[in-house]
């Protein structure tokens, strides 16, 4: 055990566990089921807030032992440097193994072919992820997806079966009853396990506050040059330069999700602390993906389509 131990405690709520305690206990149970049932799992860690929660849950689940899985990040090469720096620092602090596989390597191999040099690499992560699964022989990948994010996710299992092409078949999912998860797969098949399936964006922020979790700086309000497009703020970066006729403004923004630069937009905000972000989230009028994801606006079923192709 670590040197400093808090006072022994018991839970206080008169009705059993508070909602964060319940969600935490459920997620730990799921992580331990992955460890107990799967021979060679990996935890997908991007440096984003959901996977930061996953890491804390994994610490609680398995300390004082080491985590029974490596961390895996599929890097598009188009991530914000603050997030990549955070990812590396956090993995080093924990003393756990971090595997990074890059979409650029898949492009060099010729397994990812972009339609044009400027096409977003986001959806091509699926190819690189499947290549990493094959390279290391992972039989399960633990991800931070939540059912409240998107309607395709709302119907996905906690233990989601993927065939040897990484495909999700929404019409042919395994029944999932009680907390009896079935992670059995044949060689080459794969389970995607989602311990925080039942968490909402607000739960994630409340957990970050309660646990005092550190986050990459771009989650907090900062000034950034942006262009307003289709109701979203498009950050002006070397990858996404302002086009002729664009009106560039500098506004106070924060990111609600972090991902590939080409498809993640910040929101206008002055919230510079977790407490202020919780306040904003509680009264927000726009969904997380609606406010921030350029990739989900393409069609009503964009996420469903990507998941069928092996996206996490």
């Amino acid at each position: 055990m670590t040197a400093r131990l808090p006072e022994p405690q018991a839970i206080a709520s008169r009705d059993g566990l508070g909602h964060l305690d319940w969600l935490e206990a459920e997620a730990i149970h799921i992580l331990r089921e992955v460890a107990g049932q799967c021979a060679n799992p990996a935890l997908l860690f991007s440096g984003g807030k959901d996977s930061i929660c996953l890491l804390r849950l994994a610490e609680k689940a398995f300390r004082p032992g080491r985590l029974p899985f490596p961390l895996l990040h599929v890097d598009t090469g188009h991530n914000y440097p603050e997030v990549i720096e955070f990812r590396d620092r956090r993995a080093a602090e924990l003393g756990e193994r971090l595997i990074v596989r890059s979409v650029e390597d898949s492009m060099a191999r010729g397994t990812v072919v972009l339609k044009s040099p400027t096409e977003s690499r986001n959806k091509h992560q699926s190819v690189t992820l499947l290549e990493a699964i094959e390279e290391f022989g992972f039989d399960a990948c633990i991800g931070g997806a939540r059912r409240d994010e998107e309607k395709a996710r709302a119907k996905e299992r906690v233990f989601s079966f993927r065939d040897s092409f990484g495909q999700w078949d929404p019409k042919n999912q395994r029944p999932e009853l009680w907390n009896l998860y079935n992670a059995r797969v044949h060689q080459g098949e794969n389970i995607r396990a989602f311990p925080i399936s039942n968490w909402t964006e607000l739960d994630v922020w409340q957990y970050i506050e309660r646990e005092g979790l550190a986050l990459p700086s771009i989650y907090f309000a900062h000034r950034r040059r942006v262009v307003r497009k289709n109701g979203l703020l498009q950050p002006v970066t070397p990858l996404t330069p302002a086009k002729e006729g664009d009106v560039v403004e500098e506004v106070s923004v924060r990111f609600r999700t972090v991902g590939d630069i080409t498809c993640t937009a910040p929101v206008e905000s002055t919230a510079d602390s977790v407490a202020k972000i919780i306040e904003e989230t509680a009264v927000s009028t726009v969904t997380e993906r609606g406010a921030t994801r350029l990739d989900d606006q393409a069609s009503e079923a964009a996420m469903e389509q990507r998941k069928k192709e092996g996206y996490f």
Partner: peptide, 16 residues
């Protein structure tokens, strides 16, 4: 009774 680096005197239904 442990959880991560926390110690508990007692624990109840629902807790991991």
């Amino acid at each position: 009774i442990h959880l991560g680096c926390q110690l508990f005197e007692r624990a109840v239904a629902g807790q991991s």
